[in-house]
């Protein structure tokens, strides 16, 4: 992995990889969508079960993106590597967008089930808190003018956030045991009918491929951007 920390080697390695990921994402999304709508409706949830196929993958990869952000932050802090900093920054927006999608689709999934647009159950609340973690990270990064300082401060927060996330998740789960949620029908708590596995796993893989493509593309863009900035600075000096 450390061989990739060299920007040139990273670019060379990800050059052919990224289009493959894009293609894979497109393929899996297409197949997943088709599967999601050809599978029969659930006898309990009706057609709303199809929302699960966009809700859970978004939530899972929203979390995965944060893990990527946190781990990148760790490497950025400990090894002071610019590539790691670029990786952390690149994961933030896609991750936050996925998490927001999870919240939105979760709300739509819940309305027909629970009759309200939001339910404070453990899972949705955890996703909301994850979203807040993203907001804090992005706000911090945006509020510091010096790019290097912003990167380091954000790396500290990213790492602290990653360490805190299990704790916050635990506290939300613990909190949930105190207050029985208004409804006991938590989607997905009853075992998943095996007929839904195919669309679910396909969409899960699709979102994963898409995140990977988005993330790598953003890192590559960031590497180029920094190179441009360096070249421009050099030119301004020589002029």
């Amino acid at each position: 992995m450390f061989g990739l920390s060299n920007p040139q080697r990273f670019m060379a390695f990800t050059g052919p990889l990224t289009p493959v990921l894009w293609g894979l994402a497109a393929l899996l999304l297409g197949v997943g969508a088709w599967l999601s709508f050809s599978v029969p409706a659930d006898y309990q949830q009706g057609d709303t079960v199809r929302i699960m196929f966009v809700h859970v993958p978004a939530a899972v990869w929203g979390l995965g993106a944060y893990a990527a952000l946190g781990v990148s932050s760790f490497f950025a802090l400990v090894f002071r590597h610019a590539l790691a900093d670029a990786a952390a920054r690149a994961a933030a927006l896609p991750g936050a967008a996925f998490t927001a999608l999870a919240l939105f689709t979760g709300s739509l999934w819940g309305q027909p089930m629970w009759g309200t647009w939001w339910v404070w159950d453990a899972r949705l609340t955890s996703v909301l808190v994850l979203f807040l973690f993203y907001l804090g990270y992005m706000a911090l990064r945006a509020s510091i003018d010096d790019e290097q300082k912003a990167g380091r401060a954000a790396a500290v927060l990213g790492l602290v956030g990653l360490i805190n996330l299990p704790i916050v998740k635990f506290s939300v789960d613990w909190w949930n045991t105190l207050h029985q949620p208004a409804s006991f029908l938590t989607p997905g708590s009853s075992g998943l009918d095996p007929v839904y596995l195919a669309p679910f796993l396909t969409m899960l893989a699709a979102y994963g491929a898409l995140f990977a493509a988005l993330w790598l593309t953003a890192i590559r863009t960031e590497i180029r951007r920094r190179r441009v900035m360096t070249l421009r600075a050099r030119q301004a000096q020589e002029a």
């Binding site: 969508a33 050809s38 009706g46 967008a97 689709t105």
Partner: peptide, 30 residues
Amino acid sequence: LDLDMTPYAAFVWPAWGVSALVLAALTARA
């Protein structure tokens, strides 16, 4: 492909539609 989502059409289609939009926007931006 059974595309008749009644009575849940108002929930399923926006969920998928907004998801598609957001993912497309992310892709375009990247």
